[in-house]
Amino acid sequence: MHQVILDRLEEYLSGSPSSREFTTHLESCEECRAEVQEMKELSGALSALRAPEEITPSLGFYAQVARRVEAQRPRSPWSWVWLEPAFGKRVAFASLMSLVVLGSYLITRETEYSAGPPRPEAIMAQQAPADNPDMILATLASYEP
């Protein structure tokens, strides 16, 4: 397409009066004439996308938008615990039960230790056979209460 057509194409397609230079060139240049004709047809076809009638948004439209925004708002991984009360209660109960079990276990362990260290005789009985007197002496020598 030639420059003279390029310059005035949008005006021509908008229906504004064409310049003499534009029309003269269009009459003489078959190449430009064909291309402009195709563009004009498509320009007309685009008008099919104009809304046929006005649609009035419903009165609660903003509220619907706000709801959609809330639904699509990115959330932290923990937010569902607070947003789902039933699930949150279950999580709280499970945490409490875990604490109770862990606490009971620790208390039991504490009771075992509170009996004090084992007596030397018990250690000797575990670590050395009774028929080895040297081992018994070595164990007794290294024993520290």
Partner: peptide
């Protein structure tokens, strides 16, 4: 913004 442009947006969508 929503209330100012909602009619225009509806019209564009309806056209397409």
């Amino acid at each position: 913004i929503v209330e100012h442009y909602q009619s225009k947006v509806f019209s564009i969508i309806h056209g397409i």
